[in-house]
């Protein structure tokens, strides 16, 4: 393996580690929220710093790679996409930590089983986890063929989010005393919806890296 290939492999390995850490953050967030596990929520919040450190390190290592090796073509697209994906992963981890903080700090009653079911919380997490895992597989196998399938999953998240707004507004309308808790729940759902958007951004970066196509701001229809 040539020296620049070793350096490139190092960048790939680092983004893989960061990606897996963020996937595990989402898995833990799912469990913490659904079981109201305070210990786990604390762990998620403390691990957020580790994700931040990955982002800073990848930023610096990508800058060095560009400065020293002047990458072009697929190498340039890979480094650029790694930089953008690491920023996006850090934001996803921020949202996961935000949900964990809800578990830690809220004065409201935890989500009841009925609410979890109505708001389809578990399904939302499962979709997000499948998007994150599938995009990692796509990145590592340099295959963007399933990009449209991954992006289509975000529609499922958007639909759940949209129906959650209706459900929670209705609930707040019925019981004004519980408005604050309803809004806090809404913010949790909103964070999950934003994670879905960021997963889509990652897929767009993978398509740019592999096929040199820019999907940004074109929507999922054009994939």
């Amino acid at each position: 393996m040539k020296h620049n290939e070793k350096e490139m492999k190092f960048l790939r390995d680092e983004i893989n580690e960061m990606w897996r850490l963020v996937i595990s953050q989402i898995e833990k967030t799912k469990q913490a929220l659904l079981t109201n596990d305070v210990e786990l929520a604390l762990e998620i919040v403390s691990l957020e710093k580790k994700v931040d450190a990955y982002e800073l390190r990848l930023d610096s290592n990508c800058e060095h790679y560009i400065a020293l090796y002047n990458p072009v073509a697929i190498d340039l697209r890979l480094v650029l996409s790694i930089m953008k994906i690491s920023i996006t992963l850090e934001r996803i981890a921020d949202y996961a930590a935000g949900v964990a903080r809800y578990v830690l700090e809220t004065e409201c009653q935890p989500f009841t089983d009925k609410m979890k079911e109505i708001l389809k919380l578990e399904k939302m997490f499962d979709i997000l986890l499948s998007m994150m895992t599938a995009s990692l597989v796509s990145f590592n196998s340099e295959n963007a063929k399933n990009a449209s399938r991954i992006l289509a999953k975000d529609k499922g998240i958007d639909d759940i989010y949209s129906s959650s707004i209706d459900l929670l507004s209705e609930q707040i309308g019925k019981d004004h005393n519980d408005a604050r808790c309803g809004l806090e729940m809404m913010m949790v759902i909103r964070k999950l919806e934003r994670i879905g958007d960021h997963c889509s951004n990652i897929v767009e970066e993978i398509v740019f890296y592999i096929e040199a196509k820019v999907l940004k701001h074109k929507g999922k229809r054009e994939v």
Partner: peptide
């Protein structure tokens, strides 16, 4: 050419 060459041979050359 330097972002997305059409031919694999070109890509192999310019990326070393």
């Amino acid at each position: 050419m330097f972002l997305n060459p059409d031919k694999e041979t070109t890509q192999n050359y310019i990326t070393g």
